[in-house]
Amino acid sequence: MTSDLSELDAFAAVARHRSFRKAAVERGVSASALSHALRSLEDRLGVRLLNRTTRSVTPTEAGRQLLARLDPALAEIADALAALNSFQDVPAGTLRLNVPRLAARFLLAPILADFTAAYPRVQLEIVTDDLLVDVVGQGFDAGVRFGESLARDMIAVPIGRPQRFVVVAAPGHIAARGIPAEPRDLMAHACICRRFPSGSRYAWEFERDGQALTVTVDGPLVLDDDEVMLRAALDGAGLAYLSEGHARDAIAAGRLVTVLDDWCQSTARLFLYYPSRRQMPPALRALIDMLQGR
């Protein structure tokens, strides 16, 4: 009994995502075509692999066992194909990245035109997602995250400058509410809160003279997008905790002012990371070289 490898790969994608729609987007096909392929596979095997309802798709017990065996095998095949790229004179193929929105805007967007011009045989696919995902399980070649978020079995390469985070507010807001003298004073101020994709709220981090401090702030807004936070701060909605690079233009123009500068000394670094057991594709090496060159 034989099955087409593309059908098995399609099953693995649907089972991982638990969604025909998401798997279809990943594979560049329609959800209906993917559903048809999976039904054909189940008919040929004589085993139901997926439980389908109008709201969810989950692997059956047979599907879970098959996926557990398939994932390592498909990864080995992907590694074997990636190894062949090293024999090519120029990088080629598809390179899939999972990156947070901030990195997509400020690190990747400025180099996209240059990269595609320099490597026309590479198709670069970027998925912006602030949720920390399993890049291997989700079919990505690499991801970008801050260093403290990375799993230990990943090879991490620093990209971009270290990012300092600052507390900013509109001058009018400061004139009306006053200046916090120390981080704990923020608890009495209107702050623009940050919510992670997991649903938890970010506690603002500070450091001075080796003393680290976190403050759980509160306020009228809970947001998950830096651009919206910046706009809200500019409009006087409250204090915001943003990367200095993101707020630099508004600070230089006097539209925002910084507070607690002596407590905003720590920096964070973005890393591009990929599985340590995989050989780096030439296209990924080319992208890293371009990012580090900037």
Rank of each mutant, 00 (worst) to 15 (best):
L5K: 07
A12G: 05
A13G: 05
R16G: 06
S19A: 08
S19I: 04
A24Q: 04
G28S: 07
L34G: 02
H36Q: 11
A37Y: 02
T53D: 05
T53E: 06
T54M: 09
R55A: 14
R55D: 10
S56R: 12
S56V: 03
V57D: 03
A62H: 10
L66W: 02
L67Q: 10
P72L: 11
A73V: 11
L74S: 08
A75L: 14
L102M: 08
L102E: 14
F106I: 14
A109D: 13
I111L: 14
L112E: 10
R121I: 00
V127G: 01
D129F: 05
V135Y: 00
G137Y: 04
Q138E: 13
E148A: 14
A151S: 14
I155F: 00
F165C: 05
V166W: 09
G172V: 02
I174A: 07
G178L: 07
G178D: 00
E182N: 08
E182V: 03
D185L: 03
C193K: 10
C193D: 08
R195E: 15
R195P: 05
S198V: 08
G199L: 12
E205K: 12
R208C: 08
D209N: 15
V215I: 15
P220I: 02
L223S: 10
V228I: 12
R231P: 00
G238H: 11
G245I: 04
D249F: 05
L260S: 08
T267W: 06
A268R: 15
P275A: 11
P275Y: 05
S276F: 05
R277N: 13
R278D: 09
A283C: 00
I288S: 04
L291K: 07
